[in-house]
Amino acid sequence: MADKHLSSQFDSELRTVSTRVLEMGGMVESQIRTAVYALSQFNPEAADQVIEMEARVNALEVEIDRELSSIIARRQPTAIDLRLLMAISKTTANLERVGDEAEKIARMVKSIAESGTTRSLPASDLRLEADLASALLRKALDAFARLDAATAVAILKEDDAIDREFDGFVRKLITYMMEDPRTISASLDLLFVAKAIERIGDHAKNIAEFIIYVVKGTDVRHKPIENVESVLK
Rank of each mutant, 00 (worst) to 15 (best):
A87D: 10
A87W: 08
A87F: 02
A87Q: 07
A87S: 11
I88G: 10
S89V: 05
S89D: 11
S89P: 08
S89C: 12
S89R: 13
S89W: 02
S89I: 02
K90G: 03
K90M: 06
T91V: 03
T91K: 11
T92H: 09
T92F: 02
T92N: 09
A93Y: 09
A93M: 11
A93Q: 14
A93K: 04
N94K: 12
N94P: 01
N94Q: 13
L95T: 07
L95Y: 13
L95S: 07
L95N: 11
E96N: 10
E96D: 12
R97S: 03
R97A: 05
R97Q: 07
V98P: 04
V98L: 09
V98M: 12
G99Y: 05
G99E: 07
D100E: 08
D100N: 15
D100V: 00
D100M: 07
E101K: 09
E101G: 00
A102P: 04
A102I: 01
E103K: 14
E103L: 10
E103C: 11
K104T: 14
K104C: 05
K104W: 03
I105E: 00
I105C: 05
A106Q: 12
A106E: 13
A106T: 06
A106P: 07
A106G: 04
R107N: 14
R107S: 15
R107E: 11
R107P: 03
M108K: 15
M108A: 14
V109F: 03
V109M: 09
V109C: 11
V109T: 07
V109Q: 13
V109A: 07
V109G: 10
K110L: 01
K110A: 02
S111A: 12
S111Q: 15
S111R: 14
I112N: 03
I112F: 00
I112Q: 05
A113M: 00
A113L: 01
A113N: 01
A113S: 10
E114S: 13
E114Q: 15
E114F: 02
E114A: 15
S115K: 05
S115I: 08
S115G: 06
G116H: 05
G116L: 04
G116D: 13
G116Y: 08
G116K: 06
T117R: 13
T117G: 01
T118V: 12
R119V: 00
R119H: 13
R119W: 04
R119G: 06
R119S: 08
S120Y: 03
S120V: 00
S120H: 06
L121R: 04
L121I: 05
L121Q: 12
L121E: 13
P122F: 12
P122N: 10
P122G: 12
P122M: 06
P122R: 07
A123G: 00
A123F: 10
